[in-house]
Amino acid sequence: MIKLVIFDADKTLWDHYNISEFEEPFHLPERDILRDSEGRTLKLFPNVRKTLEELKRKDVKIAMATWNFPHKTEKVLKALELDSYFDVVVSRDFPFKFIMIAEILRKFAESGIRFRPEEILFVDDRRAHFGNVWLYLGRIQCLEMWKDINDHLEIISKLENSQT
């Protein structure tokens, strides 16, 4: 049974490839579109909010592991009003997702919450990250966005299928 879903950010939750480029002030022309002071734009993918809301409703913990500058991630999540969905956000200026996920698990453990690898689902748009996740952290379930699934709501159905 999945108890924790960990999301990548860029090209997984939104269409931009690197929010570390974004400069304040931010402007939201629409609820799911963010524009920075230089005119760069990101758009949340369809059903991201709905998926996060459904995970919360099901009492699944939600985390983020992203290769971005931490202060940029924090500001973008806050501007899009997504920050409240995430129990833990680990944003680092290096690409090693297995280290970020280990940090996420450590933060949960510090608050008394522990997860076995089979209770964790990691969603990223780059399959290249999965090998080290499995090597160092065990058989965490991994989904490659846009290959294994094409809509965020499919995460909910994968969750429901893992419950049976």
Rank of each mutant, 00 (worst) to 15 (best):
S37V: 02
T73W: 07
G39W: 03
T41M: 10
L44H: 03
F26T: 04
V5N: 00
T73L: 09
A109I: 05
F108Q: 00
I6R: 00
F45C: 06
S111C: 05
S20R: 06
E24V: 08
S84P: 10
A102H: 12
E38R: 15
E103T: 14
D32W: 04
A9I: 10
R127Y: 06
N47Y: 15
L82G: 11
Y85G: 00
L44E: 04
I113Q: 14
I149A: 11
V76H: 13
N161P: 04
D32K: 06
G138V: 07
N150S: 15
I62M: 02
R92M: 06
D32T: 10
L137D: 09
S84R: 10
P25G: 08
S162D: 13
V88D: 02
P29Y: 08
Q141P: 04
E74L: 05
L121M: 10
F96G: 03
F69S: 11
D148A: 04
L28T: 11
L13A: 07
D10I: 06
I101T: 11
D151T: 01
F122Q: 04
N68Q: 09
I101C: 05
F108N: 01
I149V: 13
E54H: 12
E54G: 03
H129T: 14
A102M: 07
L135Y: 13
V60Q: 01
R35E: 15
K11F: 07
D87A: 08
P46C: 05
D59N: 14
R106D: 15
D151H: 00
S111I: 09
L52Y: 01
D10F: 11
G138Q: 07
V76D: 08
F130V: 06
D148L: 04
L137W: 04
G39P: 03
F122A: 02
I104K: 00
K75Q: 14
L159E: 02
M1E: 09
P25D: 12
K97W: 09
R127W: 13
F122S: 01
R35V: 15
N47L: 05
P29L: 15
V89C: 01
E118D: 13
R31A: 14
E154Y: 06
F22S: 09
K147F: 10
Y17H: 14
S162Y: 01
D36I: 02
V89S: 03
H152T: 08
D124Y: 08
W67E: 14
L13P: 06
S84W: 08
T73I: 07
K72Q: 12
N150Y: 13
I155R: 00
P70T: 09
L135D: 15
I104A: 01
F86C: 04
L34R: 03
G131V: 08
D93W: 08
R116W: 05
S20P: 09
K147W: 12
P117T: 13
K61W: 09
T12L: 02
K75A: 15
K11A: 12
F98G: 02
T12P: 00
K50F: 06
Y136T: 07
L105K: 09
D93T: 12
N47E: 13
K107G: 01
N47H: 14
T73N: 03
K58Q: 11
N47F: 12
L42W: 08
Y85H: 05
N132A: 14
D125L: 07
N47K: 10
E119V: 01
C142G: 07
V48E: 02
L28K: 15
D8T: 01
E23N: 13
T73H: 07
M100D: 11
I6C: 00
V48Y: 02
V5T: 03
V88S: 02
V123T: 06
E160D: 13
I140D: 00
D36W: 05
V88C: 02
